[in-house]
Computed example of a mutant assay.
Amino acid sequence: MGLFPVFDHLLYRFVLFFDKIPALALLPILFIVFGLGETAKIALIVIGVAPTIILDTYLRVKEIPNEHLTKGMTLRANSQEIVYKIVLPQIMPKVLDTIRLNFKAVILFLIAGEALAAEAGLGYRIFVVRRYMDMATIIPYVLWISLLAFLIDYFLRKWIQKKYVWLHQ
């Protein structure tokens, strides 16, 4: 979208509009359309996080200096080669960091989806125990979710540093 003007004109305003819609407000609609199963929760996560990641990726592509694209065209690179050999290597570490930083929102949407329509899961258990104000049970679940989020973030960060070692030198 950030590289090809046709896609920019077709999709940018749509994604920008979709990004402003609160995903949790769409949850009842998602339950009606997809039912109470996992599909609605996955749709909630995608609708809640994807527009932000798409817009950030768009801005990252726009940050690439035109000289890099011109150099690729001068060397007779076609559009596909420009995307895969010039643009993606420059933006991929930043896009992965954006995904990593949006992981908290992913967990939030997962817990919200489980709270309203689930029979299992950490979010479901927190909301079941919440009714009884049982802090002795809620706190371990919150700590467990936080530990899982920290570990996933840690390993993803290490993987990005290993895969894109040239960024950290």
Rank of each mutant, 00 (worst) to 15 (best):
M1W: 07
P5R: 12
V6Y: 11
L10E: 09
L10N: 09
L11R: 06
F14Y: 14
F14Q: 10
F17V: 15
D19R: 15
I21M: 14
A23K: 00
A23M: 07
A25M: 06
L26A: 02
I29L: 05
I32T: 11
V33S: 05
V33G: 05
G37Y: 11
I42F: 02
L44F: 00
I47T: 03
G48P: 00
A50Y: 08
A50L: 07
P51D: 00
T52H: 15
I53H: 07
Y58M: 03
Y58G: 00
L59D: 12
L59V: 10
L59K: 09
P65I: 11
E67K: 06
H68T: 08
H68I: 09
L69N: 09
G72I: 01
M73I: 14
T74F: 10
T74K: 15
R76C: 06
A77C: 13
N78I: 00
S79C: 11
Q80A: 13
Y84E: 10
V87F: 04
Q90D: 12
Q90V: 08
Q90T: 07
I91K: 02
I91H: 03
D97F: 06
R100N: 13
R100Q: 06
L101D: 09
V106I: 11
V106P: 00
L108P: 08
L110Y: 00
I111G: 00
A112D: 01
A117G: 03
A118E: 02
A118F: 09
A118C: 04
G121L: 11
L122W: 15
R125F: 12
R125M: 08
I126R: 04
F127G: 00
V129A: 10
R131N: 12
R131E: 12
R131G: 10
Y132P: 04
Y132D: 08
D134Q: 05
D134H: 00
M135K: 09
I138K: 06
Y141E: 10
L143T: 01
W144T: 13
I145P: 01
S146N: 08
S146I: 02
A149C: 09
F150Y: 06
I152N: 12
I152T: 05
F155H: 14
L156S: 07
K158D: 11
Q161R: 12
K162C: 11
K163R: 15
Y164R: 04
W166H: 11
